[in-house]
Design a protein around this nucleic acid. Structure first.
Length: 275
DNA sequence: TACCAGGTAAAAA
DNA sequence: TTTTTACATGGT
């Protein structure tokens, strides 16, 4: 076990609430007060510690992955200063003090997770996703490694449909696994080009592409204007209960530039994090 | 029971 | 070109 420092303030429990709020997540598993995840086939446990987190095991392979996983790239200091100029956002930053949004470590997992969450409630999305993980993933100790692209490429649409995927979503997921995307090259492209590449793939719309920028690549300007949860949060904190349309939400994002991604995360977290 | 839930593609108009 | 529909599960 070794200490991994994160810039203060950092609140591990608040930051990881989204892995618990909608039911258990087998790939990001909360167990005995710590977060467990398979990294390179090994189970890694992360728990809160003064000044950061305790990580076990921790070595040169795991450290950069965990740092990214815990949202290390986000510039929270600059964001907090920016938020002070916007009263509703300032309230959220104070209420959710120490929230550093986690980032999803792997691109294929990020996109498949988004596909499972398209249109349905997050509770049901987690249920279907957990069945996919148990069927095609590898269990480490407690947590499971998410199914690999190679394994899903060999699966059939019927097998996915049997797990609760719609016919359409089963096609999306298997097709994505078989597409042979160059993830390393994709990550080098600017936001607009990443979106254009992703949206060209069947089953990946603008909402899914925006969340990929936000939750995998951690791009500061990502703003998922098609997200129902974001509409609800904007309605609650800015629009007197009226849910905005997609164009209205997209336009509203300018208010948070250049911190759209962190703003979206704080807005969404306000919906499910208890004070 | 019917309806809503962190969308998307394809059919119909 | 724009609008409408099908989709599968889980909670209420």
């Amino acid at each position: 076990m070794a200490l991994l420092l994160l810039p203060e303030p950092y609140d591990f429990a608040v930051s990881t609430e989204r892995y618990r709020a909608f039911g258990p997540d087998l790939a990001n598993l909360w167990h005995e007060g710590g977060l467990h995840r398979a990294i390179g086939g090994r189970e890694v446990r992360i728990e809160t510690a003064p000044g950061g987190v305790d990580v076990s095991p921790l070595d040169a392979e795991i450290e950069p992955v965990v740092l990214h996983y815990l949202g290390g790239p986000f510039d929270l200091g600059a964001f907090s200063a920016f938020a002070e100029t916007d009263p509703p956002l300032a309230r959220l930053v104070h209420r959710l003090r120490g929230l550093r949004p986690p980032l999803n470590p792997t691109p294929f997992e990020t996109l498949v997770t988004s596909i499972t969450a398209q249109q349905v409630s997050l509770q049901s999305a987690f249920a279907v996703r957990n069945r996919l993980i148990e069927r095609f993933g590898e269990r480490a100790e407690h947590a499971w490694a998410f199914p690999t692209e190679e394994r899903i490429a060999r699966a059939s649409e019927d097998e996915l449909a049997a797990l609760g995927f719609s016919r359409r979503k089963a096609e999306y997921v298997v097709g994505l696994a078989r597409a042979g995307i160059d993830w390393v090259e994709l990550a080098t492209l600017p936001d607009d080009e990443v979106k254009a590449r992703l949206v060209a793939i069947r089953g990946l719309g603008e909402w899914t592409a925006d969340w990929f920028l936000a939750r995998h690549l951690g791009r500061p300007r990502a703003w998922p204007a098609g997200d129902l949860g974001l509409w609800r949060a904007l309605a609650e904190h800015y629009l007197e209960g009226i849910r905005p349309t997609i164009p209205e939400t997209r336009a509203f994002g300018a208010r948070f530039a250049p911190f759209e991604n962190l703003s979206a995360h704080y807005l969404l977290a306000s919906l499910y994090t208890v004070a």
